[in-house]
Design a protein around this nucleic acid. Structure first.
Lengths: 88, 88, 88, 88
DNA sequence: CTGCCATTTTACCGGC
DNA sequence: GCCGGTAAAATGGCAG
């Protein structure tokens, strides 16, 4: 043990790389947080107008799921088809 | 579709509002997903250069965690461990 | 800080309790592992008879989901029913 | 029509077998769920007595992890941290 | 050994 | 302000 990355032979270089990665990740995490906060704000706004957040969340969830379900359907079909030898 | 009789005449308006909120939320969720994907990509890149992602995640987490929290947590951990004889 | 559990005034007692909990948990985890291993064994057996594990997993998953969906349906209905009153 | 399994010549037989496998798997999954629920219950109990479940989980995890693994992991963590100046 | 999937853990958000 | 539940992240395990 005692190596950073696989850039053996140039530790300083690896250190720099590592630092850079961590910075980029932390920056990306910040963006994630920002986006999440933004969405929360929308919910808060909706709530302030009298809507029930729980219900809205559920609707959003259901819509996403049906979308995914639709996308998954063909894949599923293929799986079953291959299972009975239709794709071989 | 149901108009529930005992009420005000602006239900259509509310529905429109609701729809708008849902759209904004879904848009925001999309952004969240995008940001998350981006971060994943960075980890993948780091991994491809030989870094240990698990450890990087830990470093990032530790950096986010405030000093006191970390100390407190680790003290509690030691306390529990010593209680069951893990530190002896 | 410096207390285990809320059994203030009797540290030794808390230590014993903690130890007991950890033992019970580890025992339970062992059982979980055992059960998981057992299931894996069944899949292996099925595979050795020429069945496609991926497909079986999918079938099992789908069956569980439809079951859960069914259970969830009534809850969902209630939520949406209440939601109809949301726009009043 | 195609075939399930390699029990050529007797598809009904294969289907029966498959069904049996699925039943056994579902039964096993049920046992897994039961065991998991049991462990959750123990954590809940511990929590109700004032213990910090998060810490207990960590203790259990550490106990499962072998000494060398833990050492190695922590060394790597320090290495990465020092590389980005977190230990200076 | 790599990628995928299930499980587990953490973090968040709304309710009380 | 805590608690409980719900969604996201992360770890671990398994099949290919």
């Amino acid at each position: 043990m005692s190596e950073i990355g696989h850039n053996s032979g140039d530790e300083g270089f690896s250190q720099k790389k590592l630092k850079k990665y961590i910075e980029r990740i932390e920056d990306g995490e910040e963006k994630k947080r920002y986006a999440a906060t933004h969405v929360s704000g929308i919910y808060a706004e909706a709530k302030s107008e009298g809507f029930d957040c729980k219900v809205i969340r559920r609707v959003v969830k259901d819509r996403k799921m049906s979308e995914e379900d639709r996308r998954e359907q063909s894949e599923l079909l293929d799986l079953y088809k291959s299972a009975i030898g239709m794709l071989d």
